[in-house]
């Protein structure tokens, strides 16, 4: 099997916040009837957490599940396990109308860390970062590309975007995190 590589091989930048490409993250795009009992239990079995309420994200370490839309979830698992998890979901939901797809290698993940992390995101996204809380996921845009973001730890924000836009996203975050560019809003 070929060797999996993340989009920017762990590129990093240090300014008012640390921007780092987070490396390989297993991601499964799941679509289906989220209210269905079988779907609920199948997702819980692989993600280790119940389906969160709208705009919620439930994470424990590298594993978790995020609410993406009324019929879509993003399941996070260690990269090497993604295919196995898709197989597990497919077995558990056999005969059911659903979609589970391993999209790990179609995405890029970044972490923005530091006391100014909110500020870096606030410069790029039309989101009120002062109200953005832990356990919440926001799908939005960062400058010109779509992205999803959540607070992974105090002062640490995880950003997910399409792999094709990884370099753009890294440049964007780096520019917004430039030394001396703190605004002091958040």
């Amino acid at each position: 099997m070929s060797e999996a590589r993340s989009a920017l091989a762990g590129a990093r930048f240090a300014g008012i916040a640390h921007v780092e490409e987070a490396g390989l993250v297993g991601m499964i795009s799941f679509r289906g009837d989220l209210g269905h009992a079988k779907v609920k239990s199948a997702v819980k079995a692989v993600a280790g957490a119940a389906i969160p309420k709208p705009r919620g994200v439930a994470l424990a370490g590298a594993t978790g599940v995020a609410w993406m839309s009324p019929d879509e979830l993003l399941i996070l698992v260690p990269h090497a396990e993604a295919d196995a998890v898709v197989a597990k979901l497919s077995t558990a939901l056999k005969g059911q109308h659903f979609m589970a797809e391993n999209v790990s290698d179609a995405r890029a993940v970044f972490t923005v860390t530091g006391p100014h992390a909110r500020e870096v995101i606030g410069k790029l996204a039309p989101v009120d970062m002062s109200r953005f809380a832990e356990g919440e996921i926001r799908r939005t845009r960062l400058a010109q590309v779509a992205a999803a973001l959540w607070i992974s730890a105090p002062d640490s924000i995880t950003v997910v975007c399409f792999r094709s836009g990884a370099q753009y996203m890294f440049d964007l975050l780096s520019a917004a995190a430039q030394e001396g560019s703190a605004v002091g809003v958040y």
Binding site: P54, R55, S69, P70, P126, V127, R138, R139, T140, R141
Partner: peptide, 11 residues
């Protein structure tokens, strides 16, 4: 009305 996000036009 689906996800409850209040956002500005560019989103």
């Amino acid at each position: 009305p689906y996800c409850g996000v209040k956002g500005e036009e560019t989103e």
